[in-house]
């Protein structure tokens, strides 16, 4: 995690949990949100890039999420989970973004492909990996947004299914079923795209 918090963020906040920090924000210590930003903006942004397929949109939405945290800080509950609340706001903001732009997420953002370079030594392997990532992004882009959300939350964000269920406002059992169904959908689409590429 990048951690170059400005001086405004008190180093004493390092030892506090996310929940304690958010309670402090709620009680008027707004600087505590700086530490929460440093801890979470990276994973949140990553989730939003995969969800929207667009880097610019993901940045805008992440910004809006932290803006809403400030605006609605008084609604944060004593028994809340900060991460679940953040992703709850995240998917709401993403839904608003899609509604405003009246567009489904892009299957693949070509500018993303540059970011997929990895440490594979051979150029041919690197190209294959990039292609594979692009195919997976395309497959993700073809899922329903609800399926994509549950899959990304369950794989990347280190959330329990209880928290995912709270974010999606459904039961734990329903969240599990939806996550598994989404994975099967992704597999079908991903393999189909691989076949199409080979032929």
């Amino acid at each position: 995690m990048v951690n170059s918090a400005p001086d405004a963020v008190d180093s004493a906040t390092d030892t506090l949990s996310d929940h304690e920090l958010m309670l402090a924000v709620r009680d008027g210590e707004l600087d505590a949100l700086g530490e929460l930003f440093e801890r979470h903006h990276g994973p949140l942004y990553g989730f939003l890039v995969k969800l929207t397929g667009q880097r610019t949109a993901a940045e805008d939405i992440a910004q809006t999420v932290f803006q809403r945290m400030l605006k609605y800080r008084h609604t944060y509950r004593d028994d809340g989970s900060f991460t679940a609340w953040m992703y709850h706001l995240g998917r709401r903001c993403a839904a608003d973004h899609f509604r405003k732009n009246n567009a489904a997420p892009a299957a693949t953002d070509p500018s993303q492909l540059q970011d997929h370079a990895d440490d594979t030594p051979h150029a041919g392997d690197r190209a294959a990996t990039r292609d594979d990532h692009a195919l997976l992004h395309s497959a993700l882009g073809r899922l329903d947004r609800d399926d994509r959300e549950v899959l990304l939350l369950s794989r990347f964000q280190e959330l329990s299914f209880a928290e995912i269920a709270a974010i999606l406002e459904c039961s734990v059992g329903a969240a599990k079923v939806r996550a598994h169904r989404a994975l099967r959908e992704l597999r079908d689409t991903y393999f189909q795209l691989q076949k199409e590429k080979l032929t």
Binding site: V2, H41, G42, P43, Y45, G46, V49, K50, R55, A58, E59, A62, Q112, D115, H116, D118, D132, H133, L136, H137, L151, R155, L183, L186, R187, Y190, F191
Partner: peptide, 13 residues
């Protein structure tokens, strides 16, 4: 599929 999904690099803002 999951392995491919987990291998997707994290984008940085």
């Amino acid at each position: 599929t999951l392995a491919a999904l987990d291998a997707l690099p994290d984008a940085r803002p």
